[in-house]
């Protein structure tokens, strides 16, 4: 049995097509990432799979239960962390956790082993109101609340958005630990660099899947020559390279520009072109493709 099965799910809001006949499968216990910019349809898909929204067409199952017929079972056995912090800000950390445990008919004690590594980090603040926690702490509490009933599938909608880099890293480490518990995790993120933390990822854009595979495979399939280049006048270089005959794509990438060149373009060719355009201090090197390069290429 697969953790999640999605078959031809479509959903539109008015004239906007949010999900366009989406299909994919997530194996049980797999950590599956949905990557895509804002508006790609990630949250809509989460709402459909967590039975908060009905699709216009298509069918889907979560932990073997149909989202239409067995919505009651699904609600009992999934953990959901909405994109927006949705715990009670005026209840304390322990009150929130207790509340969600009780609603699912369980106790903190019964499933403490599952949340222990996470809860230990926020335990010093157990009497603090949830609204007064820092962003990273809020995410940890929300994860505890979503895990407290030992869900079969965990839905995390942009759990790391608005969280600092250290907390993000910790958060992904915690998700990796959950692998042992056999919990299927569907996690979405707008940060491309988080893709490698997932076992498989789907690149989502305007309701369609552009690519779906292991992150390394997706990157490995990118065979076009990729160069990192920089010069004194960064912006002018971008404009000039975009006009160059050998360019396919030029994208801003931190302190370097990533240039996807046509096959058989040599480094010398590029440097000469840039020098010809009057750029100084040119630094050119071959670059390793990242998920972001793939994504921009597919868009």
């Amino acid at each position: 049995m697969n953790g999640i099965e999605v078959e031809n799910i479509s959903k539109s809001f008015g004239d906007t097509l949010a999900l366009d006949a989406l299909s994919f499968k997530v194996a049980q216990g797999e950590r599956f990432g949905l990557l895509g910019p804002d508006g790609a349809g990630k949250s809509t898909l989460f709402k459909i799979l967590t039975t908060l929204l009905l699709p216009d067409a298509g069918r889907a199952t979560v932990a073997g239960w149909d989202i239409d017929k067995d919505f009651k079972e699904i609600r009992r056995h999934v953990g959901y962390m909405p994109g927006k912090f949705s715990l009670y800000q005026d209840l304390s950390v322990s009150e929130n956790l207790n509340f969600f445990a009780t609603i699912f008919g369980t106790t903190i004690k019964a499933n403490y082993h599952l949340i222990k590594p996470i809860y230990e980090q926020i335990e010093p603040f157990r009497d603090r109101r949830a609204g007064a926690l820092s962003g990273g702490m809020k995410q940890k509490l929300a994860l505890c609340c979503a895990l407290i009933h030992q869900p079969k599938v965990l839905f995390l909608d942009e759990p790391t958005t608005g969280v600092d880099a250290v907390s993000r890293d910790e958060f992904w480490a915690m998700l990796a630990q959950l692998k042992d518990a056999g919990i299927t995790i569907l996690v979405s993120t707008p940060y491309m660099d988080e893709a490698e933390r997932c076992e498989r990822v789907a690149l989502l854009q305007t309701g369609k899947i552009l690519a779906l595979d292991r992150p390394q495979t997706i990157v490995g399939n990118f065979t076009e020559p990729l160069w990192a280049i920089r010069a004194d006048n960064y912006y002018q270089l971008l404009l000039d390279l975009r006009k160059a005959p050998f360019s396919q794509r030029v994208e801003v990438f931190g302190e370097f520009l990533h240039l996807t060149a046509r096959p058989a373009t040599t480094g010398e060719e590029i440097t000469t072109y840039a020098e010809h355009c009057g750029h100084g201090n040119i630094l050119l090197k071959p670059a390793e493709a990242t998920i972001e390069d793939v994504f921009l290429a597919l868009m």
Partner: peptide, 13 residues
């Protein structure tokens, strides 16, 4: 408005 209902709705309540 606050969004807490979204979390509540994915429970057996």
């Amino acid at each position: 408005e606050i969004g807490t209902i979204e979390q509540i709705n994915v429970t057996p309540i």
